[in-house]
């Protein structure tokens, strides 16, 4: 079997590949955040988490919609509802169960910081006007997600003994999923050549510096970066959690695919 068969060559296919990678991260992360609705630690934070979730699902929908236009698919729902887990291209970090509030915040902080650097570079690079316009619009919201989660990292890290322990534990647990945020694959290398993507491995350094500073200020310890790192999600090799998430998300739409649901 030719393992390279899934690497798109044409520019059109590459754009779609990149759009879906960005969109899947956001849909799945947004979905996990949406599970907090009605269950947040305080009313104000319930609103805040829902806002971030809405932003992320909105970003995903816009990116999918553009991909659908390019590919001639009916609409954005095609990608969210009619693909299986092996077709999803999100990183594993975002599909992990929502955990406690510390886990949610640690993940949101790490992911928002990553998105911040990624979007900043993408906006400089991507020539496609429509794509770039979306990136610019979403970047503003990403900055807010970053600010919100970072403030909470300070509060939980330097709060009580319990909160300190919980968020330290969360960072330790998530760390093995941070590796694949920065590992380039062949599709991305090809996309870089066509000005559709950026060298994410170069983002690791500024990202790590920012995370290190934040954790230090929050009296937390940076987890050991030299440890086993989970990999392969971008190529469809996910954790077991994604399948369950999709089973829930897709069941109604797939049970009655011909009905009108919009």
């Amino acid at each position: 079997m030719n393992t390279n068969q899934n690497i798109p060559k044409a520019k059109k296919e590459l754009v779609v590949e990149i759009l879906l990678r960005l969109a899947d991260d956001r849909l799945i992360h947004g979905h996990r955040l949406s599970e907090w609705a009605g269950h947040g630690p305080e009313l104000e934070e319930d609103l805040a988490l829902a806002n971030v979730a809405l932003d992320m699902i909105g970003h995903a929908a816009a990116l999918y919609k553009y991909a659908a236009e390019i590919e001639g698919k009916p609409d954005e729902d095609h990608y969210a509802y009619f693909r299986d887990d092996i077709d999803f291209k999100n990183v594993a970090m975002v599909e992990l169960p929502k955990g406690d509030f510390a886990f949610t915040i640690a993940r949101q902080f790490l992911f928002s910081a990553y998105s911040y650097f990624l979007y900043e570079k993408l906006i400089e690079t991507v020539g496609d006007e429509q794509f770039n316009g979306m990136l610019q619009k979403h970047f503003k919201e990403i900055k807010y997600h970053f600010r919100h989660s970072r403030e909470w990292v300070f509060r939980l890290g330097d709060g009580t003994e319990e909160s300190h322990e919980r968020i330290q534990h969360a960072f330790d647990e998530i760390w093995m999923y941070t590796g694949e945020l920065f590992s380039l694959d062949d599709a991305e290398r090809t996309a870089i050549d066509k000005n559709l993507f950026v060298d994410i491995s170069e983002l690791k350094e500024p990202w790590l510096a920012l995370v290190k500073d934040t954790l230090e200020e929050a009296t937390l310890t940076l987890p050991d970066d030299d440890q086993y790192m989970f990999s392969g999600s971008r190529q469809g090799k996910h954790t077991e959690h994604l399948g369950h998430l999709l089973a829930q998300m897709q069941f109604l739409r797939r049970s009655y695919p011909d009905a009108e649901w919009k």
């Binding site: 305080e42 009313l43 104000e44 934070e45 609103l47 805040a48 806002n51 600010r147 919100h148 403030e151 509060r155």
Partner: peptide, 20 residues
């Protein structure tokens, strides 16, 4: 009004509550 532990969070909560 909103509840918040400090000024920064009050500002964020106000944004999420009254400027949706």
């Amino acid at each position: 009004s909103v509840h918040a532990p400090d000024a920064e969070m009050a500002l964020q909560n106000a944004r999420d509550t009254y400027a949706r």
